[in-house]
Design a protein around this nucleic acid. Structure first.
Lengths: 223, 223
DNA sequence: CCGCATCCCCAAAGATACTG
DNA sequence: CAGTATCTTTGGGGATGCGG
């Protein structure tokens, strides 16, 4: 009884920009939900599937909270399916993810756990600029176990990376698992080994794929 | 009894840099504790006083966790007082704070709550570069209700901002409250009004203080 | 199916008291 | 001063169910 209008009223109560940001996206799971929307809209079930352990009530609650503060909106597609997508304001969390990922990847303790499709692709978005590459141009279709992505590189710069089906012709199609994809572009595994063992397949311009997945040096571990 | 070695085992279980970073600093209060250490070491009681509502057990737990992952260390000063300070690895969270603060300050919903001393000073560190200023050089002593800070500007660039007592001569000393300090450098209040009403006092080079606290335009609100 | 709401249970956070 | 002990309250994980 006496339910107030604001449900998630567990504010830090500080007039500090950082505290205020954390009031909005600092709750458990909130930033990971936003991360799942960085590459495009997602449905409720897809969010749930890509956030193992979240539980339906918490997911619903966070989606409500994030919608209330204007980070995301819900939209109904023509065919009736409901999706959640970032607002422009939510999209401006990109530098937060870049900073967090750059810090987290340098952690002295190794990353463990499952690697879902989106983080594998997002690594490319975050760290692609680090490597020195020739200025080529190509469009790719990447398929990671059910998730489909379109990647566009123009003059050696990654200008588009979204969860989507290709609308026009692509230069190459890559099909593999999130883990193998990650191991290849980080240099942990040679692309030839992955292809040779049948864990990664390429259709189309294989040279272009080799350029895209050329080993990118991650920031080195701290301590 | 039966206390396990890992207490805070509530990992997201994902091999994603962002999830991994949040495993380390994503728990409630964790980033605000780190924020309190950005300007220098602090004692337990001072952390508690500057993080209203945290409660002693949660604070102790977070300090243990953050020490375990290498973000901070505890140190005992010659006179026997214990302080917590960031490790180098913890100091590298600076870009995360910059990104979070830049996003949070643009929030459509206004910042409310108490403003403690550190966030007031940290705003200067985060946003000082935004304004166009002449290249002057000066050392300041800022005192905000019990907290003492040293600020050094060289050629118009803020090269030092720490919670400390001045060790040598300073060009100017400023004494005020966190709120007034913030209102002046953000341009929400004219420095003359603050001085005139006795809420801000300057000793030494007042021209230098006017340069330091010249209104800095914050990133404008979104939506 | 999809998008949740409900329920149960445990773990974490808040509040207060107290101790080495 | 620097926490621990204890108690209460809230939030999160997991299963099930139900309306659209």
């Amino acid at each position: 009884m006496g339910r107030e209008a604001m449900v998630g009223t567990r504010s830090y109560g500080q007039a500090c920009p950082v505290a205020h940001a954390l009031d909005m996206v600092g709750e458990r799971w909130a930033l990971l939900i936003v991360r799942e929307l960085r590459l495009g809209p997602r449905r409720y079930v897809d969010l749930q599937a890509n956030l193992p352990g979240i539980g339906p009530s918490v997911l619903a609650q966070r989606l409500r909270d994030l919608e209330a503060v204007g980070v995301l909106r819900r939209r109904t597609l023509p065919m009736g399916t409901r999706v959640y997508e970032l607002t422009e304001w939510g999209g401006e969390l990109e530098p937060v993810f870049t900073a967090l990922a750059t810090w987290g990847v340098r952690s002295p303790v190794p990353l463990t756990g499952v690697l879902t499709a989106d983080p594998a692709m997002l690594g490319l978005r975050t760290f692609f600029g680090e490597g020195r590459r020739p200025p080529w141009t190509a469009t790719y279709h990447v398929r990671l176990e059910g998730d489909s992505y379109v990647v566009r590189v123009v003059d050696g710069r990654l200008v588009e990376l979204a969860r989507d089906e290709p609308r026009g012709p692509v230069d190459a199609t890559v099909e593999t698992t999130p883990a193998t994809f990650n191991r290849v572009w980080t240099g942990a595994e040679a692309i030839d080994d992955a292809i040779g063992e049948g864990r990664l397949s390429v259709h189309g311009d294989e040279r272009a794929v080799r350029r895209l997945l050329a080993p990118t040096a991650l920031p080195e571990a701290a301590e």
